[in-house]
Each structure stands twice: as structure tokens, then as C-alpha cells.
């Protein structure tokens, strides 16, 4: 839905890095390199980024119950 504020496993705050990550990926940069440079070292935090699908804008168009 929306990027988690922190990593699920270790608790590192990572939410603020999502926009940068997306921006750099759209310029064609390598995921591995971008994650390294953003300081996302552990595989728990990396998996949050790699597995995330940002559906917040799509979901926002439907009614909330």
C-alpha cells in the first residue's frame, strides 16, 4: 500500500528513502547500487524495498469502509 515507516524486522527507519529510491530507479540506475548508497545494508531492509508495490494512489480512488 504505502511504504512502511520502518523495516519490519530490524526497525530501521526507511520510509523517507522511498521517494529517492524510486526517483533514481526511474533514471535507470541499478537497484543494488542505489540500495547500497542509500545505506540500506541488511537484507531485511532491502527486502522491504524490493518487495514493495506502491498502491496507495490506486487504492485512494475507492471508498473506504
Amino acid at each position: 500500500m504505502i511504504i512502511p515507516v520502518r523495516c519490519f524486522s530490524c526497525g530501521k527507519p526507511i520510509g523517507h528513502l522511498w521517494a529517492q529510491y524510486q526517483g533514481r530507479l526511474s533514471k535507470g540506475e541499478d537497484k543494488n547500487k542505489v540500495l547500497d548508497e542509500l545505506g540500506i545494508q541488511r537484507y531485511c531492509c532491502r527486502s522491504v524495498f524490493l518487495g514493495h508495490v506502491d498502491l496507495a494512489d490506486e487504492a485512494a480512488q475507492f471508498k473506504k469502509f
Partner: peptide, 15 residues
Amino acid sequence: PVFPDTPIANLLKGQ
């Protein structure tokens, strides 16, 4: 907040 750019929620027009 330590990280001011952390997204909280997204709002559409009118929300």
C-alpha cells in the same frame, strides 16, 4: 521527527 521526509499518508483532491 528525525526524518522529515517520511511519508505519512497520501491525499487525493478533496481529502
